[in-house]
Structures are given as C-alpha cells and as structure tokens.
C-alpha cells in the first residue's frame, strides 16, 4: 500500500509579537513522516510540542514554511488557498474535540455540510448523509438537533460528517477530550471499526490510554518527532 502522507524536512515558523519586536516561534523543526494507507496513527506529545501544528499542516489548514509535503500523490507546496480548500473537502475528514456541530441544523444536515461545498445535489447529499449516520450507528437520530444528543452521539455525528466526505484521512484532534470515559470508549471502538474497514486514521491526543488504541504512536517533543 502507498503512502497517504509523505513529509520531508517540514518546518514551521510563526512570527508573533508586536511590530517593533517580533518573536519567531519555531513550531516544527524538520519533520520526516510517512503514513501508509489504512494505518491508525496517534500523534502524541505535551502541549507546545508542535502536534497541533503538525495536524494543521497534515489537514491543509496551514502550510509548511519549508520542506515537502505530499498528500496522496499531490504535492501541496505552492497551492492557492482555494485549491487547498477543495483538496481539504475531498481528502481530509476532520473530527474536533469540541465537535463543532452547527446547533441550528439537525444531525443529517450537519453531516451534509461538506457535500454542500462539493456542489452535490440535495437528494445525493441526503442519501450519503443517511449512509454515514448509519455507519456510526445513529440512523435513528437523523432529525435530532445537536442539543438533543449526548456527548458521545455528537462526536459520532461529527465522525459521520467526516466519513461522508470519503476522505483519504480521518484527522481527529483530541476526539475524546470533551467526553466521559463511557462515551470515549464508544468513540474509540468506532475508530477501531473504521480502522478494520481500511480507513486511514490520524489522531492527535495527549492521553496515553487513548493513544494506546492506535497501532502506531508518533511522539513529538519541541517540534521534532522523537520516536
């Protein structure tokens, strides 16, 4: 199987501070990382280690200052913002710690959201959203608003929203951070299922027992991969 993510010497420098005194923060100091199709990887590290920055670059929300990043055979360097958005829409399925469901939309409409920007017709979106919600075991919650769902269910809707894109990578940022232990287990079991079905999952976390569910752990420290 080929590499979904291929990084060579990726660095990221942030300029922060006022006009008079800018401070350069080196968030990533040369990352080499390969993730194969179908892998379940956890990126772990203390806060400030650069794991969020790495996730943003993998997820095309940010671009490297230097180095080469290839996402499923597509070299990302030099892409315009709207090209990145379209690539994000096709290849990256985000799952966030705080779910980020739109509170005024029912579950099904929340799941449809990425397909709206792909320009799919209404009926097609509806069909795919049904299927995605079924895949996460929420076929009986299609018409519920987020505030009518439990934390675990909300996160499963968010996972369905990522799955509906049929992305190359499921990119989860602290997916259990806002959940109690029971709901955390549900979500992690779901990730296991998806992994068995062949999905590529990259999960950012600082909780060791959550990271332990992944098949490979990438540890970060001071902007470098240490293991």
């Amino acid at each position: 199987m080929g590499n979904v993510v291929e990084m060579r010497g990726v660095t990221k420098i942030y300029h922060s501070g006022s006009r008079q005194r800018t401070v350069d923060v080196q968030a990533l100091r040369g990352i080499d990382l390969d993730i194969r199709e179908g892998e379940f990887v956890a990126i772990m590290g203390p806060s400030g280690s650069g794991k969020s920055t790495l996730m943003h670059i993998i997820g095309l929300l940010d671009t490297p200052t230097d180095g080469r990043y290839t996402l499923g055979n597509v070299p990302v360097a030099g892409m315009r913002e709207d090209e990145l958005a379209r690539l994000r829409n096709r290849k990256i399925g985000f799952v966030f710690q705080a779910f980020f469901l739109l509170p005024r939309l029912i579950a099904q409409r929340n799941v449809e959201l990425p397909l709206v920007y792909r320009g799919l017709p209404f009926s097609e979106r509806q069909r795919r959203a049904h299927a995605a919600l079924q895949a996460v075991g929420l076929e009986d919650r299609l018409y519920h608003y987020p505030n009518e769902l439990s934390g675990g269910q909300k996160q499963r809707v968010a996972i369905a929203r990522a799955l509906v894109q049929e992305p190359d990578i499921l990119l989860a940022d602290e997916p259990t951070g806002n959940l109690d232990s029971q709901a955390s287990l549900e979500v992690l079991d779901l990730f296991d299922d998806l992994h068995r079905q062949g999905k590529t999952i990259i999960m950012v976390t600082h909780e060791p027992d959550v990271g332990a569910r992944a098949k490979r752990i990438v540890r970060m420290h001071d902007g470098r991969i240490v293991v």
Partner: peptide, 16 residues
C-alpha cells in the same frame, strides 16, 4: 467566527 472556521475546515473556499 467558529461556524465560518468549521465551514472552511470542511472545504468551503473563501469565495463560497
């Protein structure tokens, strides 16, 4: 702002 951020993360272009 957060809704806009989410929509962009899901693939909305600036033009959209």
């Amino acid at each position: 702002t957060r809704e806009i951020g989410l929509r962009k993360a899901l693939g909305a272009t600036s033009a959209q």
